[in-house]
């Protein structure tokens, strides 16, 4: 289980540009979805890649599910050469995605994000609309299940707004 209460302050302290997406974003938007990891869309600018490495290196990131013998160095160059990474770390499983399915890169995803207060820190989180777009673009069965709930939550919120 990812230690969100440690991770969020850590990302802030290191000035990392990130948006919470995926299952944890769904949870923050009111979904009952249960997920063990946390997904971030991250800015791929050079400074951000360096800051990510500085912040997460003490937690010994390794490629989740990869052969233990596969050589892997967690540095800015590795991040620059890839796009989407699934890491196991000492503070839980962390997925770093340079692109969100159906939406695009960090700058595109910002347009579908809102700022929520998490552990007294302002964090960018994918909106319900953004989550629905990304889940619709996904072909994974589990995404189709959560999609039904997200669409219902969005409808409930619309009705509440119209009939406060």
């Amino acid at each position: 289980m990812v230690k969100v209460e440690e991770l969020i302050p850590l990302l802030h302290k290191n000035n990392i540009k990130f948006i919470i997406i995926g299952g944890q974003a769904a949870v923050l938007q009111g979904s009952g979805f249960v997920t063990a990891d946390i997904d971030f869309c991250y800015s791929r600018d050079k400074n951000n890649l360096e800051n990510i490495v500085i912040a997460l290196s003490p937690f010994k990131p390794t490629l989740r599910g990869a052969d233990k013998n596969l050589p892997f160095i967690f540095d800015p160059k590795t991040l620059e050469m890839g796009m989407n990474f699934t890491f196991s770390t000492d503070i839980g499983d962390i997925d770093l995605l340079g692109e969100v399915t159906g939406i695009g890169n960090y700058e595109d995803t910002l347009k579908y994000s809102e700022t929520l207060d998490i552990y007294n820190l302002p964090c960018k989180v994918l909106t319900l609309e953004g989550l629905i777009i990304s889940k619709k673009a996904s072909t994974r069965q589990k995404d189709l299940i959560v999609l039904k709930e997200l669409e219902a939550i969005l409808e409930i919120q619309k009705r509440r707004k119209n009939n406060p």
């Binding site: 209460e5 009111g30 979904s31 009952g32 007294n120 709930e149 939550i153 409808e155 409930i156």
Partner: peptide
Amino acid sequence: IKEAVEFGIDLTLFYERLELTPTQRI
């Protein structure tokens, strides 16, 4: 909403979560 309920999703729990702050939801 009807589709979700028919799909088997219990939305009554959503109202409870709606009262929580983002940190409390986490």
